[in-house]
Design a protein around this nucleic acid. Structure first.
Lengths: 337, 337
DNA sequence: TTGAAAGCGTTACCAA
DNA sequence: TTGGTAACGCTTTCAA
């Protein structure tokens, strides 16, 4: 049998109001003794409020929709973990939705979430959406009718958004290579339109420019942000003998490249100096260990939640935040000089 | 302004009951005309039922709680993905909850889920629970008051459960090593009481026995199912010079061992033949590639959902299912002969 | 310091 | 074929 406030009230011999007040720490002006008794009974019989009832009464669901392209990607799963934990701390459930990086899906799912009455949404948009152009993306975002925060992507709109500084990441990675006298540096970035891919590329360009190295379009390679993406692209890179270093904009791609060269009985690291992106734990397992850009996913989750909460509390002015990234130096860069 | 049933009722000039009946396609015996009008208004003003109210009234929610130790673990995240997809297909939301492998948490979260009115639970239990003994675990499970399926664990109770055949996994892995003339095979399994750890160990024992190799308790090493677990344990293994092969009951542990030996300027694979467990994609990135036990996570998710659904539909007789695993042969076993 | 009672939006039982 | 109304469990206002 489930314990309700009414039952507690009966057991202690007070009104439901009193129980509600006490259990929500609302009203301090309740007799110490009654208070104690109520809390005692609640604890003893393990009282848990019925959240449907709370939602109905307060007209909020205490649920946040968390929309991500793919739970399976370690970057997203780490983000979800961070978000869920932070959300739980402030009394919200995370209702996580996979879009499979498909915008149609994304659009449909968000509509459902809204209908279901979630209080807000944390949206990590699909690459599929951004690949259709920033204007299409912005137009889509403009039509979301409930509080939401755009996570891990940019928009020109005056909406709440948090992103990691991909420009800086691209810059730091490239600079690390340049510092070791590399001048012919390939960059393997996401396919055209990928969220954040252009920023990393721009950081790369800027770093080259700042060091007086001319940008060569032929050194830009594009592929999917996954193992197969790297697996497929490495042979194209090998065709250009001038290249001495590669900046992989995603660790998974790097792993794919390793896999491919191993299969060819070659060692990627004999061929190239390398920098990765995301700082996966696997970077410490490989030999050599991988120098990589670390993104603070936990912080990204935390800020997303904070900003959404702020919006939920009625703050109007939108926040646009860019989180710092850092270079983790390991062994995968050899000096050319 | 949100549209409610009452408002529709007023607009059309009928009772709330009628509206509810029509909108839920409950009662065909409503005047065609009224029916049409109600549906018309609902569609026109985009009526969406308040799900808190529905949940409260029906005491159910079209939501299934999915309780896992840790989203971040690739095995669990793959499972969640599979489950969410399957659940979505039959019209349910997955409300995923992290227990951080802490039983107190698990217990609290389940209680919350129940009070929140989820219709059922897919429970991947914590190791923390099972470490307290099968009887404690069973006792806990016995007290879950809503439909649920025990996933990826065993229970003696007559409850719905699906698990992967860990005994078979342990057997296959060990046999593969024995087939290559290894006789001093270390096993690195989970800490005492870990879910499925004993089964893998028993499979190992059985395989040894079937090949006339005496079981040596000194070859059993225990640690956490993660990278650090393997990192910490490898030095202990190195103290026994007889050991020529290691069966890691979890790929992450294997990675930790690689990391540690690399740091010592040694190569794990020069020292030992190795079999892993879970068949992570990294296994193909490493050199040599790793022979490992593959578990069909997608199938595990699918069956979990099917069995829960069956229970939700009122079927009483519990199902206890064991899913097959297989050995994926790669390069990490060298023949001793 | 406390309690009664009116919601919150639905569902479902019982009458009409 | 319909409608009144009591739940569902909680919050909140107003009175006492």
């Amino acid at each position: 049998m489930k314990l309700t406030m009414r039952k507690i009230a009966e057991m202690v011999g007070v009104s439901v109001t009193t129980v509600s007040l006490v259990l929500n720490d609302k009203n301090v002006r309740i007799t110490k003794d009654k208070k104690r008794q109520i809390k005692e009974v609640a604890r003893k019989y393990n009282y848990v409020p019925n959240s449907s009832a709370v939602s109905l009464a307060k007209n909020q669901s205490n649920t946040i929709g968390v929309v991500v392209p793919n739970i399976n990607n370690p970057f997203y799963s780490a983000l979800i973990k961070a978000i869920s934990d932070d959300l739980a701390e402030i009394g919200y459930y995370a209702l996580t939705i996979n879009t499979d990086d498909n915008h149609k899906n994304e659009s449909k799912q968000i509509a459902q979430l809204v209908n279901r009455g979630v209080d807000g949404i944390l949206l990590v948009p699909t690459n599929d959406l951004y690949a259709q152009g920033q204007d299409v993306a912005d137009d889509f975002l403009k039509h979301i009718q409930i509080p939401f925060v755009l996570v891990n992507a940019d928009s020109e709109l005056a909406i709440n958004q948090v992103n990691l500084d991909s420009f800086e990441g691209g810059y730091l990675a490239t600079q690390a290579l340049v510092d070791n006298s590399h001048r012919h540096i390939a960059i393997v970035t996401g396919n055209k339109g990928y969220v954040n891919a252009e920023n990393r590329l721009n950081g790369y360009k800027q770093a080259l420019g700042d060091n007086g190295i001319p940008f060569d379009d032929g050194l830009v390679f594009r592929s999917d942000y996954d193992v197969n993406g790297g697996y497929d692209i490495i042979e194209k890179i090998e065709k250009n003998p001038k290249i001495t270093a590669i900046f992989f904009c995603n660790d998974l791609m790097l792993y794919g490249a390793i896999k491919r060269t191993n299969e060819q009985k070659k060692n990627l690291f004999d061929l190239y100096s390398v920098v990765g992106y995301d700082d996966s734990y696997f970077n410490e397992v490989l030999n050599p260990t991988i120098t990589s850009i670390r993104q603070d996913v936990a912080e990204l989750g935390r800020r997303s939640v904070q900003i959404l909460r702020r919006q939920l509390e009625g703050k109007k002015r939108p926040i646009n935040e860019k989180l710092q990234v850092s270079l983790i130096k390991r062994q995968s860069i050899k000096s050319l000089s």
